[in-house]
Amino acid sequence: MTKFLTTAALALALGTGAAAAQTTLFFGEAGPNRGARADAINFFADEVERLSKGDLTFDIQWGGALFKAEAAKSGIADGVADAGTIIAVYFPQEMAGYGIADLPINNPDPWVGMKATDELMRSNEQIQQNLADQNLVYIGTFTTSQINVGCKGATIDSVDDIAGLKVRGVGAYGQAFADQGANLVSMSIYDAYQGMDSGLIDCSQGYSYVVPALQWQEIIDSYTILNWGQVGALGVFMNKDVFDGLSEEEQTWLMEAGRAIPDELGEILSVENDAAVQMMRDQGIEVVELPEAEREKLVEAGSTYVDQWQQTAANVGIDGETLMSEYQSLIDQYTQEVEDQGYPWTR
């Protein structure tokens, strides 16, 4: 098994107490060191170092230096890195339990989604065992935030408006659009600007903070807030052999830092998403909030993909129906918390 000779591994091999002095872990991230997720990863690493008073640190390798996104699961499980980011959509079978956070259900709030996902991943024994069988330990979760759609030369005011549009879609959200008559075009989000500019596509699904990042405001005429769901099955995982070799105190530091991610990233996304929507309004872009009745049509359209996910989960020994019930309950719980107390950063 290929493995970096981290301070932790060296200490274990020598049977010394060196790891108690300082442990450096290698972290693999396929994305660049910029943007909301990078900010959350840096926060996580800084939080681990703070909690441990410098005894436990990360050496973060950005931009796929250790492995690309589609090789992250094996890269971490096999020890190419001690920890790193796994995006579940690349591993629909192996990460079936985690994939629940990607489903097109009524789950648009980034903080609520992350908190519900985080608690589910920590508490559900089926998921824990499935990950352990793959030599993985769950540490913390991210989200891309809710899926919305920007269009050039079109406006989506209702589900009926989707029919006939050429749309760059995202996973099950794109497929649900196709079920409503959209013509799906396979395209990277980074190519959506050129696609809309050239007429290759009319619209692109994406996230509010992506609009200024990719300069969509220069090209789109309308932006529809779907209030539908999010892509939330991406987060920090660790090699179980390495994790089990750490002290109980070190494991606690990692888990505490992982639990703190939703509050930090939730605030980042809230600020960036709100600023992006206001920027679009200021520039005269029509911002539409899909009516509740229309949103419910999308949630219903997504139910097919929830059923498909449940079958995938069953194939790996996970009771998808029970898991979905638990997840929905957690979403309701944290939604109520926001209604009663507001978000943590506003309290």
Rank of each mutant, 00 (worst) to 15 (best):
T2L: 14
T2A: 14
T2C: 11
A9H: 06
A9Y: 09
T16G: 09
T16L: 11
G17M: 11
A18Y: 12
A19T: 02
T23P: 02
F26V: 05
F27R: 00
R34D: 10
A36K: 00
A38E: 07
D39E: 04
D39N: 03
I41F: 03
F43C: 03
F44E: 04
E47Y: 00
E49L: 05
I60A: 06
V89P: 08
V89H: 14
F91E: 05
P92R: 07
Q93T: 07
M95Y: 09
N106K: 15
M114D: 03
K115L: 08
A116T: 04
Q128T: 12
N130H: 15
L136S: 03
I139D: 11
I147A: 13
I147C: 09
G150P: 10
C151W: 04
I156P: 00
I162R: 04
A163E: 08
R168K: 11
L184I: 15
L184W: 08
M187P: 08
A192S: 15
Y193C: 08
D197C: 09
L200S: 14
I201N: 13
V211Q: 05
L214C: 07
L226Y: 06
W228K: 11
Q230E: 09
F237Y: 07
F243T: 05
Q251P: 06
E256T: 02
A257I: 01
P262Q: 03
E272R: 00
A276H: 00
M279W: 13
M280Q: 02
I285M: 04
P291Q: 02
L298M: 10
Y305R: 13
Y305E: 04
V306G: 09
T312P: 08
A313G: 15
A314D: 14
D319T: 10
E321M: 12
E326V: 12
L330F: 10
E337M: 12
E337Y: 08
Q341R: 14
G342E: 07
W345T: 01
R347N: 14
